[in-house]
Design a protein around this nucleic acid. Structure first.
Lengths: 139, 139
DNA sequence: GTTACTGCAAAGCTTTTGCATCCCT
DNA sequence: AGGGATGCAAAAGCTTTGCAGTAAC
């Protein structure tokens, strides 16, 4: 799983460092949509020398190369999603959690339509539902 | 146009101050999707005493009461849209401009569907297209 | 007269930058 | 050996907060 991303980074002439592997490993299969600080704090235990600058450098590199999605959801911070398949997100303003929302077939806008918009070249699309989740609705 | 918003603020027990009126007047019909700094810099001329704190206070009040949309598009800043009708946005990463994208009938997800999502209560929806606009595509 | 709002300054956070050192290739 | 990556610290932005004074109602 990570091998594919490592291969792609190598193809791009980017170096494979322990720090980058650690970030990739942390993100692999992670559906919590962590922020840079979340990543940093989690890796700090295993890699005490890890710095925020390296986390930012790594997520930027991954995002620029399509291996990671950047999710601008609130004004507080950026969140990241290693799942680059076409899907949306739901953000609960009460608990702050971010949920994946996968299109149920007919509802999604076809990718072909999104590729051209008012004559603009579409590079990416983000759709966010601001919700109150089940857990929070019950108080 | 502004009268409707003033009325709503009054109904909510909020005070109508010259600063709030100035912000409302600036935003009325404004399709540039300004940031807080944009609003501040524009009003500074006419209202030299205006402060950023007041701009933030005002846009927060307006957004909380549904008179203004908050657009989290980049990690740089929040942008605001006085047009609260159902529509999306396109952000050009080259020039930084934000364009309105109105649904062309069939394409939009019906509001009724958005009101319930995986059992979550949907409060708002934001869809952003990250694009390269016509002007920038031509270099 | 109350209560909320304003404005200023300071603080808080996230993110970026500069630079010397390090290490992947 | 070379060039990118790391890590530290400082800086830069945006946004928030505290508080005294002020103005709307």
């Amino acid at each position: 799983m990570i091998d594919i991303q490592v291969r792609k980074l190598k193809e791009l002439g980017l170096k494979i460092t322990p720090q980058r592997l650690a970030v990739l490993d942390f993100l692999d299969g992670n559906t919590s949509h962590p922020s840079a600080a979340d990543i940093y704090l989690s890796l700090r235990k295993e890699y005490p020398s890890m710095s925020m600058a390296t986390v930012y450098n790594t997520v930027d590199v991954l995002a620029k190369n399509g291996l990671l999605l950047e999710l601008p959801i609130t004004k507080d911070r950026m969140n990241y999603d290693p799942d680059t398949s076409e899907h949306d997100h739901a953000f609960c303003s009460r608990c702050g959690r971010i949920f994946d929302v996968f299109p149920d077939g007919a509802a999604g806008v076809p990718a072909t339509r999104a590729a051209e918009l008012d004559g603009f070249r579409v590079v990416a699309v983000r759709k966010v539902y601001y919700v109150v989740c089940k857990d929070c609705e019950g108080k």
